[in-house]
Amino acid sequence: MATNRRQFLNRVLTAGVTVLAGYVVYPVIRFLIPPSVSSDEPTKVFVTTTDEMKPNSAKFFRFLDRPAVLVRLPNGDYKALSAKCTHLGCTVEFKPAKDFFYCNCHGSEFDINGKVLKGPAALPLPVYVVSLSGNKIFVSIQNRIA
């Protein structure tokens, strides 16, 4: 069936309004999405000193805009991991008696290397690099000499 003048104008008008709506909606959605974390976010931070870390203890700190944890093992080694549970984002707790991390929100467990011991979490906790400079402890995402 041939399109008459009225139908043609209606279609043109509908298309115009749709494009106009897109022009309005797009900036609104873009406005609501927060800008990405700036690239100058430090990838290496000073956490504490060796004097403050007793064996079998943990210190929570903020790294890469997320909670992180530094653990001093009974043998004196240090481990640093993201403390954000990979299930739904709660901050995990360090259990010194068994050397593992437990999430109080939904019960996930991770070993000292971040590996999942028990779900519902499926992914391991990201591990960071620990470096010492004198008695200062640094954590980074790259293996640099402090």
């Binding site: 903020r62 909670p67 739904l88 709660c90 901050t91 999430c103 109080n104 519902p120 499926a122």
Partner: peptide, 28 residues
């Protein structure tokens, strides 16, 4: 204190408990 771990026994309000328990039982 946003850096510290979630406290033990944490649970949502009663009307979200069925969702919470479902999330705890099966993969999300």
């Amino acid at each position: 204190n946003p850096v510290m771990p979630a406290p033990p026994g944490i649970k949502p309000e009663w009307y979200f408990l069925f969702v919470f328990q479902t999330l705890r039982t099966v993969p999300e």
